[in-house]
Structure formats: C-alpha cells, structure tokens
Design a protein around this nucleic acid. Structure first.
Lengths: 226, 226
DNA sequence: TGTTACATTACAATTAACTTAGAGCTTGGT
DNA sequence: ACCAAGCTCTAAGTTAATTGTAATGTAACA
C-alpha cells in the first residue's frame, strides 16, 4: 500500500541507502538527494508528503535548506542532527522543522515519528483556523497568538494586521493594500499608521524573540518571511 | 457498561492501538493523542477519569506533560516508562503520577492498575461532573463552588457564567458567545450585563483570593486561565 | 550630500472596560 | 396576597488601554 512520498536529503551513502530501504519496505515512495542545493531544488519542484533532512550537508547546510524551503512551502520536515546539539534542534524547530532525530537512532523511532508527523498534518490542519510561520502561530478562532507556545498579548489592530501579514506571508504587501484590508480605508490620505503598527508588532515579536519575521521592502511595503 | 473516560497519550502506533482496543473491550471510552503537546491540550480541555501517559513522546515529553498538567488538574495519571529507568519512575511519582508501568508489560497488569487507580479516586471524589482550574473547583451536580475547599456563595447566573468559563478555560470567549450560552440572548442589543457579572465573579474569586483567573482580552472578550 | 523613505517616540483623542447605585423582578414565608 | 430578601439587569460616571497624529531621528539611494 502507498503510504506517501518522501524526499530524503542525506549525503552519507550508507545511511541514505539504509533509510531508503526501510522506508520503501514500509510502503513509502522515496526520492533522494545528496547535497543541500539539489535537495532544496527537488523539494521545491515537487509535492512531497514529508522531507527528511540532514543538518550537515555539502553545498548548503540543512538549516539553510529548511529556512529557504519554509519561505514557500509547509511540507513537514524531520531534521537529522549529527550530535546532540541543542542549538541545532532549537534553531531547527524555530525555523519550522516539525521534528528532529539525533543520530544514531533506531529506525523504528524514525518510522514512528514519520507516522506521527504525517498523521498530524492531516488531523490538525482542517479544524483549526490557525496560520503559522516558523514558530509563530496565530489562531483566529481563539484570538490567540503564540511564539514557542508562549502567548503574546496583541491589541485588536495588531492582531488583525499580523493576521493579514501571515495569511499573505512571503508576499510583499503595500501600505495601501494593508490600509484597505486592515483599516478599511479606501484612500491613503496622509497617514503613517501602518508604519506605526508595524513598529508595535516588531516590538512584540522581532525584538523580543530575536527573529526577523517582518521585513521592509523599501519603496514597496512590508513582507512577512523567515 | 460505561467504565470511564480515558486519555491515552502514546506515540507508537502499534502499542496505542493495542491498548485502545483492550480498554474499549473492557468498557472504557478512549481518546488518543500522539504527542505531548496535543496530549496536554486535550487533557486540559476535557474532564477525563484517567490519563495513560508515555514518557517518551515527541514535541513535549511525558514528564513535562505531567508537570504542566498538575498545575491545574488532579486527574489520575499512569505513566508508561520505556526502560527500567529508576530515575523516570521516581521523578514521575514526585511530580504527581499515581502509578507507573514499565514496558513491556502484560495488558492484564495495566487493566488491574487502572481499576485500582479509578477505585481509589471514587472514594474521595464522587464521580461528579466537576471541573477545576487551579484551586477553584466547580461541581455542577451539587451546585457548589469551592476555592481551597472553602465554599463560595454564587447566585445562579454567577454559577452558570463561571461554569461556562471553566468548561472553556484557556479559550477567549466573546461577549456574544457568553450572552448566547449563559443568557440565551441571540442578539447582543446594547447591554453590559456580561461585564457586570464578570465583575461579580471577580469580587468573589479574584479579589478575595488574590489570584487572577479571569482575564480580559481587550476588544475580544474574557478568558479563564491561571 | 541632499533627498526620500522609513523608524521611532510622545501624546492627545478615542474607545473599551470597570464599577457602582439603584430600579424592577422573583421567590419564599406567612 | 403581601412583604422581605435577594437576585438580575440598566444606566451613568469613572478609569484604563488602544489608536492614530505628528514631530523628530535614522538609514538608503542617487
């Protein structure tokens, strides 16, 4: 039975071979890449159900692959970290990995995590009206925003603005568009209110958590991305 | 015959499936979660009679789930420890587990411990429709609310409002939702009655006991949380 | 280096929530 | 049926948080 399509990005041939055989034995379809750049390209060119990504890779390391991938894809990613490097794990989860494994590991555990990750996707995507970028989650139904599951206190305007940015992440939004959607203004008289609220959000997200999610695109507008 | 509602938090599918079938065969109602975070959320969101909790879990390990759970709930917990890790057992019991099982185990033994644990509970707390947050307990069947076992005198409206808040703790409830559920109003004319009753509850709970359970989410509504 | 776009901050206007008094209701006792 | 006691809700004044403006500071670009 077909279980899903998995992309395996790993440079060590022995490990790659081993994981591939195990996955195929479990019924998954597997494609492989041996370096970061090729892996990223493949990840972006097809629709995989899951990506297994080594951190130590030639040409483009796993973190960087993940960061770039997350700019345009929500495909679940399980990272393989060589040592018990806390920083790698934390950073990986920060920039949007769904899980990680520390090498060496029992293949059974990897299989379990794959199952969990795949199931998870299917279960909690539909019911929650939540959007996510990196570790920042916004749940409209509960009117809640969390970073690392820690709750942020946003005012209503801040919330609405962030929601609009998140729903259009990686797209550059002009001030006019934002004014229209969030404030309901049709004409941008002469106000800098968008700038001000962008500042408020940065104060509560970018400053506090040392990530840069809100980017200025000079001459155009603002953009939310990792 | 209905025996009780059990939450099973275990990531390994085979084990989970097996335990679930056995429990259902014994007459228990079973809900499952596959990772720590989801498990904790579910545990806090409903009133289970017992929780079976694996120590090794993705996203939030069992110890951490237990620790956080105990901050606001006394639901009995049986831990499943993978190895014969003394430290896990000791720590688990320390932070409030009621019993533990070492994998692998005979299902009969688990069933026996479940029976024991549930029986234990029944003695000092009748199987009531009670909800709890922190030290605040509300027992619908007796129409009684206590804080630190001291009884609070609430009027019917106050009681209904508190019950609705407690049943939806940690979720932000809009005035409209509250009006509809507690007052049965379908349209929120122009009334501040919710504000007023929130005030009454605060006078009897937050003011008196110096805890802040009732939180205002400006522009949205109210939320009950620790 | 001048110019424009953006960032930042202080503060006044606005809006939301809190609090209280008291006017009607309900309920239970006689 | 009437009263007393307590409960429910309205309304108005008060307090507090948010929103938006405007002035000033800083970085980018030509």
């Amino acid at each position: 039975m077909f279980q899903g399509k998995i992309l395996l990005i790993e440079d060590e041939t022995k490990i790659r071979r081993f994981i591939q055989l195990e996955l195929e034995h479990e019924g998954y379809t597997v494609e492989e890449e041996q370096d970061g750049r090729a892996g990223l390209n493949k990840a972006l060119s097809k629709d995989f159900d899951l990506i297994i990504l080594d951190v130590m890779l030639p040409s483009l390391n796993g973190m960087e692959v993940l960061r770039r991938l997350r700019q345009s894809s929500q495909t679940p990613v399980i990272m393989l970290t060589a040592r018990d490097e806390i920083t790698d794990k934390v950073m990986g989860l920060d920039i949007g990995a769904d899980d990680y494994m520390t090498k060496p590991f029992a293949i059974e555990e990897l299989l379990a995590r794959i199952r969990t990750t795949l199931k998870h996707r299917r279960i909690d995507s539909p019911p929650s009206a939540a959007v996510q970028i990196g570790n920042l989650k916004l749940d409209k139904s509960r009117h809640q925003v969390t970073y690392d599951n820690e709750e942020l206190e946003l005012t209503k305007r801040e919330f609405d603005l962030l929601e609009y940015l998140m729903l259009n992440k990686k797209i550059v939004l002009t001030r006019d568009a934002i004014l229209k959607k969030v404030w309901g203004y049709d004409f941008a008289g002469d106000t800098n209110i968008v700038d001000v609220y962008i500042r408020y959000l940065r104060g509560k997200i970018d400053d506090k958590y040392r990530v840069k999610l809100i980017h200025t695109v000079r001459g155009v507008g603002y953009q939310l991305k990792l």
